[in-house]
């Protein structure tokens, strides 16, 4: 098993997903099966290979915007789907640093 239970718990924490104990075991099993399978990439020699950053190839480089204000100013549209909002703010349980 390449991914142990502690690892699964840590990843779940980072992902902000909680699992019941029996779910954890099932996920651990699935994860291990998948990770063991993708491990076959380690046999490829990539010493001199650079990673792909994007399959989009633009010889002119990354497209850029002009610095103009042409968006925003629609608070109603921004907050209309919010589960909890008040006076145009999004509400979240109190966060203290």
């Amino acid at each position: 098993m390449s991914v142990d239970k502690d690892n699964v718990v840590k990843i779940a924490k980072l992902s902000k997903i909680s699992f019941k104990d029996d779910e954890i075991e099932k996920f651990q099993e699935d994860l291990n099966q998948i990770i063991d399978w993708v491990d076959q990439l380690s046999e490829v020699n990539t010493e001199t290979v650079s990673p792909t950053f994007s399959s989009f190839d633009n010889d002119k480089g990354m497209k850029k915007r002009e610095d103009i204000i042409n968006d925003g100013n629609y608070r109603e549209d921004i907050t209309v789907n919010a589960p909890n909002s008040e006076e145009g703010f999004f509400l979240v349980p109190k966060v203290i640093d």
Partner: peptide, 22 residues
């Protein structure tokens, strides 16, 4: 004038959630 990756304004002190794009 506008944000790093969007066209909404950067000016300080505007009414909350108005200088916000999708």
């Amino acid at each position: 004038n506008s944000k790093l990756f969007s066209g909404s304004s950067t000016s300080f002190g505007a009414d909350h959630n108005t200088q916000v794009s999708f």
